[in-house]
């Protein structure tokens, strides 16, 4: 029975000076966010949060991971997700919870030992909730990063059809194992889909070629050969040609061309297409 009292006491602590505490809380949160979110929005968020917290404490939940506080946690999840998406720092997100502790400090100054005890218990719950907020914040950021990585991967590896039976992959950006895997799979699938026997890998947009990148390229070319297609590597810049030779990378019998145009010409010739300049046209 005594325990029941102390629990509702904690709720009492929150309800006692409610308006002043909430106002102070909102003020300090708005201050820390430096006007990047409107006061009205913060006001709405924090009031909802406060109400949920009071309700949970009245119901007797003091465990931050318990059932009673699930409503509070849901609100916090939404809050930290929004903050993460809008680009706030972890501190600016956590302060939304931790500032509530500060709002209680004035009441503590002239309170009894019992008040201090209640403050400490509340403080423990708030600390746990703050940790939860940061966890959610981090998880959201990780989700954002991984979805961006996927988007980037899709953006940067198009397979284009240049001619009937000739496809090309213009590679842009640094090549690592994961990207090469995607490029390889897309290229091979495109060979099957379009029935192309000639493939051109254009590395004009690749900033640097090291032994690993070369290894990846060679693998892709060998795989294409296994399927019955011929690969040409084009767009090797002078600087990169020097690096490749300096590193001692052997391209073996793989055809390399300086420009995509040369590679296309070769591919067309191999597929039995002759390019003839129109009589009297141009030069």
């Amino acid at each position: 029975m005594a325990k029941q009292d102390s629990k509702s006491d904690l709720a009492g602590l929150l309800s006692a000076d409610r308006e002043r505490v909430v106002d102070q809380w909102i003020d300090s949160v708005v201050g820390s966010l430096k006007g990047r979110i409107s006061k009205a929005e913060v006001d709405r968020e924090l009031r909802e949060l406060y109400a949920a917290l009071v309700e949970a404490l009245v119901a007797g939940g003091e465990d931050a991971r318990g059932d009673h506080l699930s409503e509070t946690r849901a609100l916090l999840t939404e809050l930290s997700r929004n903050r993460a998406r809008q680009g706030f720092t972890p501190s600016e997100t956590a302060i939304s919870v931790l500032a509530l502790k500060r709002a209680f400090e004035p009441a503590l100054r002239d309170g009894s030992a019992e008040d201090t005890d209640r403050y400490l218990r509340l403080s423990r719950i708030l600390d746990d909730l703050a940790l939860f907020t940061i966890e959610t914040y981090t998880r959201t950021r990780e989700e954002i990063i991984s979805s961006q990585a996927t988007q980037l991967m899709e953006l940067s590896t198009p397979v284009v059809k240049l001619w009937d039976g000739v496809i090309a992959v213009p590679l842009v950006g640094t090549l690592d194992s994961a990207r090469t895997q995607v490029v390889m799979e897309k290229l091979l699938q495109a060979l099957v889909d379009t029935g192309s026997e000639q493939a051109i890998i254009d590395i004009t947009g690749v900033p640097a070629v090291d032994t690993q990148v070369a290894q990846h390229l060679l693998k892709t070319i060998v795989a294409a050969r296994l399927m019955g297609a011929e690969c040409t590597v084009s767009g090797i810049r002078p600087q990169i040609a020097q690096t490749i030779v300096a590193l001692g990378i052997e391209f073996g019998d793989i055809v390399t061309k300086a420009t995509l145009a040369d590679a296309l010409q070769l591919a067309l010739k191999k597929s039995g297409i002759d390019l003839v300049a129109h009589q009297g046209g141009g030069r």
């Binding site: 390889m184 799979e185 091979l188 699938q189 060979l191 099957v192 693998k219 060998v222 795989a223 294409a224 296994l226 399927m227 019955g228």
Partner: peptide, 14 residues
């Protein structure tokens, strides 16, 4: 002549 190799098979062999 080996024909009709699937992309996944080609990758595995490589």
């Amino acid at each position: 002549v080996v024909v009709g190799m699937r992309p996944a098979v080609a990758i595995t062999l490589v």
